[in-house]
Amino acid sequence: MEKVSISTVKSIADLLVVATILFAVIAFAIMLWYLARRPPLTGVTKLVLLAGIFVFPLMSAMSGNVSGYDTTQKREFCGGCHVMIPWTADAEDPNSKSLASMHARNELFGDRNCYRCHEDYAMFGAVTTKATGMVHLLHYVKTYWSVPAEETFGRIHIYNPYPNHNCMHCHSTELDGFEELADHKGAIESIRSGKESCVSSGCHGPAHPFSKVTKEGAE
């Protein structure tokens, strides 16, 4: 069953690529026609241009944006800024025991584990996630462009304390197996309310232990 859904997703992604290119080619042909032939500006010409400048480019942009949005969720994309490479390399290391890496192996979201843990799970989560992403980009260009990745350990922090709610998006805390664990049992209410962080050290944190090596307990 899982194989089927994965291959469907793949073909939808491919479909978006094909659609983006197809609409672009149609619009491009109209642009070439107008530029080369220079037809008189009649109503018909304007209608054709409406399709070539507005309708088809808009359709190309829409499918292209969905495809692009999908790309931005991939770990590969996160590693596009060199300072993130230690984080992505750790996630890809099959021997790593970090919490982040343990979330990088499943078929469903393993290749986008960064995004799945770090996105805002709220109504406008996608928007706020992208907005902070833009802030990150500025920060990168201004401060970290030429800084070796390893020297960022202890300097790059998470903006806000990591919300338990993000973990609970996938780990409901409602199963018997969860509640039976002694460490969970005693603290179940403060875990659910977020009073006690899932990723405090001694529990499941830190999620990226290697980044805490140079400066002990950097927060």
Binding site: I21, P57, G64, G68
Partner: peptide, 13 residues
Amino acid sequence: TIAALALFVWSVL
């Protein structure tokens, strides 16, 4: 438009 289309196509290819 051509410049925009080129960017769209580049980004998916």
